[in-house]
Nucleic acid binder design. Structure first.
Length: 290
DNA sequence: CCGACGTCCTGCTAGC
DNA sequence: TGCTAGCAGGACGTCG
């Protein structure tokens, strides 16, 4: 009853929603103890991290790409990724601990911050200094979509032969876009997922950049995408699933033109598109010489 | 160097 | 009805 398995696929809008929801519950609260589960996460929790975080106050909560950053008052930071099924909840200590709960931070408010992750694609780690945190983030992430300049974006596209879908999923180029919003942004820009980066015109690049920002803005306003009713915890369901144009709509009718939405596999991921609205023009063959 | 692909992990579901 | 193979995917490692 308290929780049923729901698919959220946390991308930027979902992570932003989590951060906003957790902020009032965590900021200025003190971590009084840490309890660690027996299953290993991607980055196993180290005992010395417990020493560094206990007694520390949460100074701020923020997001970078799909990463959650919890700033502590000793200039150290918790850096967390939800992966596919990672969930943070704030619950009273007497609340039943669900299966797959890997970390429990007890706060001086009396509540507990809990990290649960069924598939363990997620991670929670500790960075001892902001320098370490910044180095870590810089090695993983390109700019936030809103900070990505048209020039830099076009240069990134022109520099690669990968298809647009793969480029959108590359966190080094633009941070925060995952499989759902990559497909949605490509549809909004009327560009074929298969189109090669370097075949993209400046006009198309700008269309796509604006589409990314617009789709993410709308998804954040809707509190993200949820694929199943979410019950319990402190999270409300997102609403963007109703606004999806292509993702999860394979073989349904395109709302724009009525054509059938296609599903294919690209960059190792399921990829949804409308072949009519997002026509793929093969590379023009040079006219044969002779 | 770059890009493609495999790996991790488990719950759900389609299909026999 | 019951079982199982296949699918879902973000980050990262490996291979060509």
């Amino acid at each position: 009853m308290p929780h049923c398995y729901n698919r959220v696929m946390p991308e930027l809008p979902e992570v932003e929603t989590v951060v906003r929801d957790l902020q009032p519950l965590l900021v200025s609260k003190c971590i009084v103890s840490v309890r660690v589960g027996k299953h290993k996460l991607r980055h196993p929790w180290k005992p010395r991290w417990t020493k560094r975080v206990t007694g520390r106050k949460v100074a701020a909560l923020r997001r970078r790409g799909k990463w959650i950053i919890i700033d502590l008052d000793n200039d150290s930071h918790l850096l967390a990724h939800l992966g596919m099924t990672g969930r943070f909840t704030v619950e009273p200590p007497e609340a039943k601990t669900g299966a797959h709960t890997h970390l429990i931070f007890t706060l001086d408010s009396g509540a507990q911050l809990r990290f649960r992750d069924v598939r363990r694609f997620g991670s929670v780690r500790h960075c001892a200094t902001s320098t370490e945190l910044e180095r870590e983030l810089a090695s993983k992430l390109g700019p936030e979509p809103w900070e990505l300049t048209p020039d830099r974006w076009l240069a990134s596209l022109k520099a690669t032969s990968r298809c647009l879908k793969a480029v959108l999923l590359d966190q080094h180029i633009v941070a925060g876009v995952g499989n759902i919003y990559a497909d949605e942004a490509l549809f909004a820009a009327r560009l074929a997922p298969r189109q090669r980066g370097r075949r993209t015109s400046p006009e198309q690049a700008e269309q796509l950049r604006l589409a990314i920002v617009a789709v993410l803005d709308r998804a954040i306003a809707a509190r993200g995408t949820t694929f199943r009713d979410y019950v319990g915890g402190n999270g409300q369901a997102g609403g963007f699933q109703h606004a999806l144009a292509v993702y999860g709509r394979a073989s349904e009718a395109c709302r724009e033109c009525g054509n059938e939405i296609r599903l294919t596999r690209l960059a190792g991921r399921s990829t949804h598109y409308c072949p009519n609205c997002q026509p793929f023009r093969r590379m023009q063959r040079r006219r044969a010489v002779s």
